[in-house]
Simulated assay, not measured.
Amino acid sequence: MTLLSTAQHIARDTRRDPRSHMVLIMVSVMIAAGAVALVAYLLWPTWVARPASAPQRLPVSVGATLFNVPTAAIRRKIQRHSGPQERVDLNFIFPSLEPPDAPKHVSADTIEEKVQPIDRIFISISAHHDSLAPDMRVRTIYPRYLEQAATPLDGGLTMRGFREGSPYANEDLFSATTPNLNARCTRDGLTPGMCLSERRVDGADLTFRFPRSWLSQWRDVANAMDRLTAQMREPRG
Rank of each mutant, 00 (worst) to 15 (best):
D135M: 09
L146C: 10
R75S: 12
D130A: 11
A11K: 13
T177G: 00
M159F: 01
R187A: 06
S213Y: 01
R50Y: 07
D17L: 10
P84Y: 01
L157D: 04
M136Y: 01
L58S: 09
Q217K: 14
E171P: 08
T207R: 15
G193P: 15
H128Q: 03
G34V: 04
D101N: 13
G193Y: 09
T158M: 08
S175C: 02
D13N: 12
T71E: 06
V62C: 07
P95K: 07
R200A: 07
E147L: 11
P100V: 05
R160C: 03
T178W: 03
Q231S: 13
P192F: 05
P179Y: 02
E113Y: 10
D205E: 11
F67N: 08
G63E: 04
L66N: 06
Y41M: 08
V39I: 15
T158Q: 13
W44E: 06
A230K: 09
E171M: 15
S197R: 10
P18K: 10
G156R: 02
R187W: 01
S175R: 14
V62T: 06
Q116Y: 07
R57N: 09
A169H: 12
R227K: 15
A40Q: 14
I111G: 05
A49S: 13
D135Q: 12
T110N: 00
P211T: 09
D130I: 00
P103R: 06
T46S: 13
D109H: 07
E147Y: 05
E112A: 15
H129P: 00
N182D: 07
H129E: 09
A32I: 11
Q231G: 06
T207C: 05
I141H: 12
D154F: 05
T71A: 11
N91E: 13
F174T: 05
